[in-house]
Nucleic acid binder design. Structure first.
Lengths: 112, 112
DNA sequence: GTACTATACATTGGTAGACGAGGTATCTGA
DNA sequence: TCAGATACCTCGTCTACCAATGTATAGTAC
């Protein structure tokens, strides 16, 4: 029951990627795994979404990357820039606002 | 600060439209006004989204429409079909599942 | 009788971005 | 040596959100 394909995600990948990277420096493959893990399989961000998203976020100056070798593997670690941190704050607020609005309609559609 | 244009909505219009119509028979223009009202301006579903969505939902057999004259105006009233009601239940569950997953990542990204 | 606003429907063209499918390469363990 | 996990990537498609624009009628004001 991984949410993919059916419900369009619209900004969810960007939000969760920024949030995870905000915690600590991470590389793509680990980000994908962690999203599945923390969301308990409710969310899957495929590689066809993840890597283009990371590149776009870096191009927009919200992420910074460095290549590093670890465990005999070359990885590209991403970290949040100050701009990225501000952007994450805005996205989070926006998500919660939409959420509250939708929830209000779902539970309270009749009276308003 | 109406959520539009920036954050892509991802199925939110479909969900809230179905939910409002589930309560009682409604016409397009009233649906748009009610979404703004109940969401306290947090959500705006523009006409370029609303009308195509209504037509698509009807084509999929989730809504049924009838034309009626009221207050000296011709309106197209929509109501939920049984299929639409089942679909709404699924969409609602799906929305809440995604939501919980995102919230878990937002608040609990570190441990998981 | 004309101008403005709100109501009520609709379409069109553009675009972001999510998605599946596919590709390369390396490391580990059986 | 072969499979499977790790780790990166791109391409083409398709959905559906969006702004802009168009039509028409009803009510109000001047």
């Amino acid at each position: 029951m991984s949410e993919r394909n059916t419900t369009r995600m619209a900004g969810v990948p960007e939000l969760v990627v920024l949030r995870l990277v905000a915690e600590r420096e991470m590389y793509g493959y680990a980000i994908a795994r962690r999203i599945k893990l923390v969301s308990r399989d409710a969310l899957t961000v495929g590689e066809g979404v993840l890597y283009p998203a990371l590149h776009a976020l870096e191009a927009r100056g919200l992420l910074r990357s460095r290549s590093a070798r670890a465990d005999g593997r070359t990885r590209i670690y991403y970290q949040l820039t100050p701009r990225g941190r501000r952007h994450l704050a805005r996205l989070t607020a926006s998500w919660r606002r939409v959420n509250q609005a939708v929830e209000r309609i779902l539970t309270d559609a009749g009276r308003g």
